[in-house]
Amino acid sequence: MSINYKELKKGGFMRQRQQNYFSMRLKCVGGHFTAEQLGMIQSVAEKFGKGYVHLTSRQGIEIPFIHLDDVDTVKKTLAQGGVQVGVCGPRVRTITACQGNAVCPSGLIDTQKLAAEFDKRYSGRELPHKFKFGFTGCHNNCLKAEENDMGVKGGVKPNWSAENCIFCGVCQAVCPEKAITVDKAAKSVTLDENKCVYCGKCIKSCPTDACKGESGFVVSFGGLYGNKIAVGKNFLPIIFDAEKLFAIVEVALQFFKDHAKSGERFRTMLDRVGWEKFISEVEAVANES
């Protein structure tokens, strides 16, 4: 029997060094599994695997030691517990996310909702090489946005208003970038926008809500953390509109398709083709009103 490894890999089966065994990747969005899914995963690992799972570096679960003969049965069984197999190969990969503002007090955006939306829109889309999205809820960056081909980080642009301000000085004290100067005597607050990293610490600490702000997305492109290591670059101002974010994703994925050689990562392509061209295409969409 000839085995179509390409097809198997598409279905999330990693060939093991042990002949005819596969480590099965499970689909995960934003690092969440329900208790029901976990129950099914447990029973499959016990019945078809070796009674353990492996947690991957990108929030996935793999069940090692699934025999080739059981692949179809296992897929069907898992589906009954709401578990799908994951993806490998040259396409959009597992979309990772921290818990975001649905749970975390520091969170500025709903990373889970975004991850689910991105999954719906882009999951499995065919590309020249793998492409990873990651969402992190704030500047603390628990999910390490810049490791991803495209990372999205929650941010907030502070907007200070004089009427509520009691010139307490908290915002200046909490700002990690020293972007704020409060002059208690002159009753003034100045913000150096070039220093601001949109972390929102000033807003979350302000006792009078004199400092507010609108949450948005800080986007980075071209992160790699494998054979080659590169930090994703951020060149756009903070984006407030989700539709704009989706438009930017389309530009990036299209640029990847149009310019990358087969098997070339997004970053490698950008470094070869030149960032200027990519930046100008992204900025054109970002600046559209």
Partner: peptide, 10 residues
Amino acid sequence: KDEGHKILSV
């Protein structure tokens, strides 16, 4: 602030 106390000054 989350606990409902007010900072008066720093």
